[in-house]
Design a protein around this nucleic acid. Structure first.
Length: 458
RNA sequence: GUGACUGUAGCUCAAUUGGUUAGAGCACCGGACUGUGGCUCCGGGGGUUGCGGGUUCAAGUCCCGUCAGUCACCCCA
């Protein structure tokens, strides 16, 4: 077996590229519908851009090397640092709020597994310079509308949302000491995966009373706003956090997406820089990794540089989304073929075929024909194989040539055209809508031989 | 980085449990036939059985290593 792509990297054959483009089109369409502008940055950045906030251990997960100029560089593992750098550089000049999106290819040196390669494309959508809750709702709406654009329904996908501020105020209300908060976050993050006693034990070792730990995990699993309000309403920070979540859910309702959203305190997000509402999208069956994750990171720009602007954003990878679409039968499998495939029978000359092809191409149609002409049936097979919408057969007659248009799907003859009119004459400028071909042919009855009836068969 | 499982044609799988020259379907290429059509028939190219070593008269099959894939952990995009 010959060597394939490097581990964790993908070859995109036409079929795979068609699938990728399908997802990209959905991303572009939704981002633009919400008024986001596309940007991009370099795939290679200074290593320091990533180590500054994350520390040196991140280097083990990066594709990094020393370039010929002695610079320490890395392939970008995420887009946010690049985004932050670009925004910071022109922070004063940019119209606020900044609403940008990007489709970067990201790289990470890690052992691959399901839904996780060493390279992927990710839709990044970010808003900078807006602290209003409506921006948080708009951001999640973009992510969910992508799901809808791809044909997924509320039965397929759920958005789980939480709020870092609310969770930390709840932990304070439960009496969790400050130095035990990270351990509590870690346990809460794993509440769906690890056995409850194990998590309680970990929290106990971090200095949280066993009874409190159990109560916290139970409350997190329930994530019942009314219950939380009843239990902790006297604490202003908690009441404020609950108000905010309810207002957020009301906004999602206004977006027509309330059914997709579920309040879930167990959504913590690994990244430390989130400061407010955070969310993750999952398939409801729980077969795949998170489809998308994001939230508010109001302090990141300040911490990364000298710009202090509130910000929020999400990343959505093409790998998990692609797996989900394929599993649900929502990934278009047929590649779009050419509009016309010209098949010619001897002794029709090659130059006549090329002239016809050129004429059709001039009208904006995509056209293919056999370079090495075989039998008519062979050319027809080639046309079917090319998934052509229509097969144009050029056949010799005693007094010239006759053109027969055949439905590429095998539905039957569509039209026969005598040599006194060119196919372009008949089809005219409606070629851009091949589906209307039959209409055009009916409008030109002289071009249709009486004994050829248009047929459609099952 | 750690662990488990799996590697035979582009794809899906065979190969009488260690026994001749590793086969089939699909796909691809060529030919025949039919100018109401994706059929049918004939033929062809494709494999160092992931790679390397070992045991044996004999290895696709057993053992070791390595690489790759899958999954989990770690971590997160």
């Amino acid at each position: 077996m010959s060597a394939g792509a490097l581990p964790g990297f993908r070859d995109f054959y036409p079929k795979e590229l068609a699938e990728r483009e399908y997802v990209f089109r959905a991303w572009h369409a939704v981002a633009r519908r919400f008024g986001f502008e596309q940007y991009d940055g370099p795939p290679l950045e200074a290593l320091e851009l990533y180590t500054r906030k994350s520390g040196e251990e991140i280097v083990t997960q990066l594709y990094n090397f020393t370039d010929k100029g002695g610079r320490e560089v890395a392939l970008r593992p995420e887009m946010t640092p690049t985004f932050a750098r670009m925004v910071s550089a022109r922070a004063n000049a940019l119209r606020k709020p900044v609403r940008w999106y990007s489709l970067p290819q990201l790289f990470r040196y890690e052992r691959q597994q399901k839904g996780r390669l060493r390279e992927h494309f990710q839709l990044n959508v970010d808003i900078v310079g807006e602290s209003e809750l409506s921006a948080d709702a708009e951001l999640l709406a973009v992510a969910l509308e992508v799901m809808r654009e791809c044909g997924l329904s509320v039965d397929d996908v759920v958005a789980r949302v939480s709020d870092r501020r609310l969770l930390s105020s709840l932990l304070a209300a439960w009496g969790v000491p400050d130095d035990a908060v990270p351990a509590a976050y870690a346990a809460i993050d794993k509440v769906d995966r690890d056995p409850r006693p194990v998590l309680v034990e970990r929290m106990r070792q971090a200095g949280i009373a066993e009874g409190t730990a159990s109560a916290i995990l139970e409350a997190v699993v329930r994530s019942d706003i009314a219950e939380l309000r009843a239990a902790h309403h006297v604490i202003p920070a908690v009441a404020e956090g609950l108000d905010r979540i309810e207002a957020y859910l009301a906004l999602m309702d206004a977006h027509g997406l309330r059914d997709w959203v579920q309040f879930d305190l167990s959504i913590v997000r690994g990244l430390a820089y989130y400061t407010g509402i955070v969310f993750e999208l999952f398939d409801r069956k729980g077969e795949f990794r998170a489809i998308c994750g994001g939230g508010r990171y109001d302090n990141l720009l300040r911490d990364l540089g000298d710009t202090d602007l509130p910000a929020l954003g999400f990343g959505m990878g093409d790998v998990v989304l692609g797996e989900l679409l394929r599993a649900r039968g929502l990934m278009p499998s047929e590649q779009r073929g050419t509009d016309f495939f010209i098949a010619a029978e001897d002794p029709v000359k090659d130059v006549d075929v090329v002239r016809l092809a050129t004429e059709l191409r001039g009208l904006g149609a995509s056209v293919e024909y056999a370079f090495r002409r075989g039998s008519l049936s062979k050319q027809r097979k080639a046309a079917w194989s090319a998934a052509a919408s229509y097969i144009v057969e050029v056949r010799p007659t005693p007094d010239g040539q006759r053109i027969v248009v055949r439905d590429g799907a095998g539905a039957g003859f569509v039209s026969a055209v005598s040599n006194e009119r060119t196919l372009g004459d008949v089809l005219g400028d409606t070629l851009l809508e091949p589906g209307d071909l039959m209409k055009v042919i009916r409008a030109h009855p002289r071009a249709v031989r009486p004994d050829f009836t248009v047929r459609t068969e099952a």
